[in-house]
Structure formats: structure tokens, C-alpha cells
């Protein structure tokens, strides 16, 4: 039996080939990077005490929390809409197909910044929001638009609707990646279309959907910074507000950048868990610890 690391007692023991250029190129890259980071860090124009002062400032932490909240909510709504749009696009009903295609075309075809500002201006187009029975005087709900569609709500709508367009294509690609034999087998067992989608097709599609959705999640986290233009006090808006008062622009960019990095790093951890969860039953290629082979030392 070969073990997972793959050596047996009677394996060939060869003298490993030397790779001097690996060491040279690695050293060069580390040197250049180190020099750049050092020059930034030691610049007299960057005030470290300001960075330290604001890195764990309550307002900054709170704004980072709002950024996470905006990301998670918008991502959730966006994904639900995306599944709906993907199913519409794959349906046999031509109207649903066209509507889905047009939706994706529209929301992918205009800048997100434009969409954010548009939803912020909704109150100008519709001054009042009313819920009632059409053609009667019965009103269940009537309120000024600016009170219902606060900048926070407008921001979430903008991000969700935009995300749905991108994610719809990802979900559709995932559904299409599942072999048609799966649907046939499910049908032959008497499963309905909806049941087949939920229990057979989507779980298998997830394997293809998750990696690009991880990308989307990180894009979303960074795109929340666009909500600054409708005065949502997320991380970027808060740090630039602070820097407009103390004029320490670079320092507060470093603070914001630090927290964005922390958040994107932490939020990408669940991805590998999800990939494992939905990769069950699909044999993964044997992942070797590559960096051990860096100096051609055979893994003993």
C-alpha cells in the first residue's frame, strides 16, 4: 500500500536536482518588496501615531461593522434574486427568459456608482410611497419616500440589485454544469421539477458556484465604499470624514485599508469550508504540500 505522502521502503533514492535560480529569484522578490514596504513605513510624511490613534477608534470599528452588515445583507438578497433570475433564464417561458436577460444586461451595463446615486434620488421621482388597493381610496400605508428609503435602504437596494445580475450568471453556469443525466434519473424516480432542482441539481451546482461567489463576496465588501456618495457612514465614508477634519488623509487610508484587509481575509475563510462541504463525493486531486518541494527535498 502506498501511503498518502507516497513513499515506500524500496522506492528509488535519487540525489535531488539542484535549483539555484529558485533561490535567486525568491531572494530578489523578497528584497524588492521589503525595500518598498520599508520606504513607505519610514517616510517622514506618514505619521504613525495618527494611524495608531485611529486604528481602534470606536467610530472606525463601528463603521467597519456597518460595512460587514451591508455586505452580508446585500449579498443575501442578491443571491436569492440571482437564483430566481437564473431559473427564469433557463425556463421555457420566453417572457421570463427575456426579462431575466434584460435585467442582467441593464444592471451589468451601467456603473454601480450610477445605480447607487439613482436609488439615493428615488425620492425625487416618487415623493411618496403608498400601499393600497389600486383604483380605490383605500390606503394601507402612506409615507414620504425619504423616510422609507433612507440612504441605508437605498444603498442596500443598489448593491443587492447589482449583485443579483452578476450572481445570476454564476448560478446559471452552475446549474448548466450539472449533467442532464442527473435530471433524467431524478425524473425517472418520480421527482418533481422543483424537488429535483432543490435536492439534486443545486447541491451539485454549488461546487461550481462557490469559488466565483467568494470573489463576489469580496467585491461586494469593497463596493460598499461607494455608498459614501449617499452618505452611508460605512468604513470608507467614516475614515474620509475623519481625515477631512484632521487632514491626515494618508494615515486614515492606511487605517481603512487595514480593516478592509482584515475583513476580506476573515470573510474568505468560510469559503474553503463550503467548498469541502459541497465537494463531498467528488474526488479531489491529491493536494501536495508544494512548498515542501521548494528545495526539492523529497517528502519523506
Amino acid at each position: 500500500m502506498t501511503s498518502r505522502s507516497g513513499t515506500q521502503n524500496d522506492d528509488i533514492v535519487a540525489i535531488p536536482l539542484r535549483h539555484p535560480w529558485r533561490w535567486v529569484s525568491a531572494a530578489l522578490v523578497v528584497l524588492i518588496l521589503g525595500a518598498f514596504v520599508y520606504s513607505l513605513w519610514s517616510s517622514p510624511n506618514v505619521n504613525h501615531s495618527i494611524i495608531n490613534e485611529f486604528l481602534f477608534d470606536k467610530r472606525v470599528i463601528g463603521a467597519a461593522g456597518l460595512t460587514v452588515l451591508l455586505t452580508v445583507i446585500s449579498m443575501f438578497i442578491g443571491t436569492v434574486l440571482a437564483i430566481l433570475l437564473a431559473i427564469m433564464k433557463l425556463s421555457t417561458n420566453p417572457v421570463l427568459r427575456i426579462v431575466s436577460t434584460a435585467y442582467v444586461g441593464f444592471f451589468r451595463g451601467t456603473p454601480l456608482l450610477l445605480q447607487v446615486v439613482f436609488w439615493g434620488y428615488l425620492g425625487i421621482i416618487y415623493p411618496k410611497v403608498e400601499i393600497g388597493i389600486p383604483f380605490t381610496d383605500f390606503l394601507l400605508f402612506s409615507e414620504k419616500t425619504s423616510l422609507v428609503f433612507t440612504s441605508l435602504v437605498a444603498g442596500i437596494i443598489a448593491l443587492s440589485l447589482n449583485e443579483a445580475a452578476y450572481a445570476a450568471e454564476i448560478v446559471r453556469a452552475g446549474i448548466l454544469s450539472v449533467d442532464s443525466g442527473q435530471t433524467e434519473a431524478a425524473k425517472s424516480l418520480g421527482m418533481s421539477t422543483g424537488y429535483t432542482l432543490r435536492r439534486i441539481v443545486l447541491p451539485q451546482a454549488m461546487r461550481v458556484i462557490i469559488p466565483p461567489m467568494g470573489n463576489e463576496f469580496i467585491s461586494m465588501l469593497k463596493n460598499t465604499s461607494l455608498l459614501q456618495v449617499v452618505a452611508v457612514m460605512e468604513l470608507y465614508a467614516r475614515t474620509s470624514q475623519i481625515s477631512s477634519q484632521n487632514l491626515a488623509q494618508v494615515e486614515l487610508l492606511v487605517v481603512a485599508g487595514f480593516w478592509y484587509l482584515v475583513m476580506t481575509t476573515v470573510l474568505s475563510w468560510p469559503q474553503s469550508y463550503l467548498e469541502k462541504r459541497y465537494g463531498r463525493g467528488f474526488s479531489a486531486p491529491n493536494q501536495q504540500q508544494r512548498w515542501l518541494r521548494f528545495s526539492s527535498k523529497a517528502s519523506a
Binding site: 449533467d179 443525466g181 442527473q182 433524467e184 434519473a185 431524478a186 425524473k187 425517472s188 424516480l189 418520480g190 421527482m191 418533481s192 421539477t193 439534486i200 447541491p203 451539485q204 461546487r207 459541497y278 463531498r280 463525493g281 467528488f282
Partner: peptide
């Protein structure tokens, strides 16, 4: 209706050339 067809199919077993087992399930 699709639900009626599904019910009819549920009484007929089918075995495929390429097995078509559900790979994500044991």
C-alpha cells in the same frame, strides 16, 4: 400536469447506461 406525470413515473423504475447516480449523495 407535471405532477401527474411524475406520479406515473414513480411506478416505473429505470436504469441508465451511464448509471446517473447522484454523486453528492452516499
Amino acid at each position: 400536469r407535471p405532477s401527474e406525470i411524475a406520479k406515473q413515473r414513480s411506478h416505473i423504475g429505470m436504469v441508465f447506461q451511464r448509471f446517473n447516480l447522484f454523486p453528492h449523495l452516499t
